[in-house]
Design a protein around this nucleic acid. Structure first.
Lengths: 117, 117
DNA sequence: GTCATTACTTACAAATTTGTTCGTGCCTAA
DNA sequence: TTAGGCACGAACAAATTTGTAAGTAATGAC
C-alpha cells in the first residue's frame, strides 16, 4: 500500500513465506476494502466518483490506494480518457474474473461458518 | 490478534463491511502465518513444540497468537493433556477441512497469476 | 538443589495499515 | 469572477500487526 522498508525484520520474515502460492494469492485480496471493490467492479465498469459514491463510508485515500495496488497486481484495469473534466474508468481483468467463482465458494463458507460460531 | 479498542475510527469503519460474508471469510485466513499453520495441521495433529520446530523462522509469540485466534475462529482444536511436562495438541476442525479444497483453488490461481505478473 | 523440558506469557519496540483533512489543476456553468 | 466537479496527492495522526527478548510454573532427572 505504502512503500516498504526493504530490510526491516518484518520484511525479512516475510521472505520465509514468499514461495507459498496460497499466501501469495491471499495477499492479493487482503485489505479491508479490496474485495468489495472487486465484487462491485465485477458487475460494472465504474468511474472513480461512482465508486466513491457507492462506498461512501470509505475514505477517498483508501479508495485510491486500493485501486492502485489492485491495478499493480493485475486485478483491475484503469483507463484514462483525455477529457475535461477527467474521466477514469476501472474494470475487472480476466485474471480477476477467474478468481470470482473461488471467492463465491469462500463466501458461502464464510456464511456457513459465521452461523456456526 | 491483540485486543482492540472498541470505538476507534478504525473499528467503526469496520462495521460497514461486517455483513459481507466474503470479507468475513478472508479475515479468518488473513495473517502472515495462519495459512501455513492450517496447511501443516491438515496433514498431522501436532504439538506446540513440533510446530515451533517446523516453523523455526516464526517467533513463539506469533505461533501462540495465531493458534489462539484460529482456535477462537473454530479452525483448529486444542487438546490439553494433564501431564508434566505439559502436552498440547493441535488439530484441524471439520469446518476448516471444508476450506481446504477452496484454498487449493486459490493456490493454483496464485501460482498462475504469479507467473503472469 | 540445580537444571532441563513444555507451552506458553509479558513488556516493549518496530513496521505497516488505515483514517482525516486539506490542496491541486483544469475547465464549465452561473 | 466565483463556484463547483473530477481524480486524485500530500501531510500527518491513529490504530493495528508483527517482532525481539526475557520470564513463568510445574515436575522429574541428575
Amino acid at each position: 500500500m505504502t512503500t516498504r522498508k526493504e530490510n526491516s525484520t518484518y520484511t525479512r520474515n516475510e521472505q520465509c513465506i514468499v514461495n507459498c502460492d496460497l499466501t501469495y494469492a491471499v495477499q492479493k485480496i487482503e485489505g479491508r476494502w479490496k474485495l468489495l471493490l472487486l465484487y462491485k467492479l465485477s458487475k460494472n465498469k465504474l468511474r472513480f466518483n461512482e465508486l466513491k459514491k457507492e462506498f461512501s463510508y470509505m475514505s477517498e485515500r483508501m479508495l485510491s490506494l486500493q485501486l492502485k495496488t489492485m491495478e499493480k497486481d493485475g486485478l483491475i484495469k484503469r483507463t484514462v480518457y483525455a477529457e475535461i473534466p477527467p474521466r477514469v474508468e476501472y474494470e475487472i481483468t480476466e485474471v480477476a474474473k477467474e478468481l470470482l467463482p473461488i471467492l463465491d465458494q469462500l463466501s458461502s463458507w464464510g456464511s456457513k461458518q459465521r452461523k456456526a460460531v
